[in-house]
């Protein structure tokens, strides 16, 4: 019972991990390259979600210090880190998509299995 209540309290961690597993699994098992890139983004987003959730405190406010007030502040650092993380994920995605365009031009397909067959014919 205690495990269940801990899970429901921290449901965002659970969601993040489920998304991470979906992302990793799709990325490694699907042969369509666009799907791989989408899965990579799901995986990255799940980690970002988890990271941002760490900084969340129930009932807390943005950390702008006001004199005399007794306020609980949220941790701003995870958010700041994840902005960097998103930029990194965007650039990796852009690069991956540009490779896929080139692969499509030279192989005529974006399916990993078909490319393997084409290469074994060479």
């Amino acid at each position: 019972m205690e495990t269940v209540s801990r899970l429901t309290e921290n449901y965002f961690y659970l969601v993040a991990i489920i998304l991470f597993v979906i992302g990793t699994h799709t990325m490694l098992t699907h042969s369509n390259m666009i799907k791989k890139v989408i899965a990579m983004n799901i995986m990255d987003s799940s980690v970002f979600l988890l990271f941002v959730a760490i900084g969340y405190t129930h009932g807390a406010q943005a950390p702008i210090i006001r004199d005399g007030a007794d306020i609980v502040y949220a941790n701003p650092l995870p958010g700041a880190l994840i902005v960097t993380g998103i930029v990194v994920a965007v650039s990796v995605t852009a690069y991956a998509l540009s490779i896929i365009v080139k692969i499509q031009r030279s192989y005529g397909t974006i399916d990993c299995d078909e490319i393997c067959e084409l290469r074994s014919d060479d």
């Binding site: 991470f20 990793t24 990579m40 980690v47 690069y95 991956a96 490779i99 080139k102 692969i103 030279s106």
Partner: peptide, 19 residues
């Protein structure tokens, strides 16, 4: 074309690593 395919495979594996 083999460079493109090898590079894509490398990118996906290393994206999994950084994830």
């Amino acid at each position: 074309r083999e460079c493109l395919e090898a590079g894509f495979k490398y990118l996906i594996m290393s994206a999994m690593g950084t994830g």
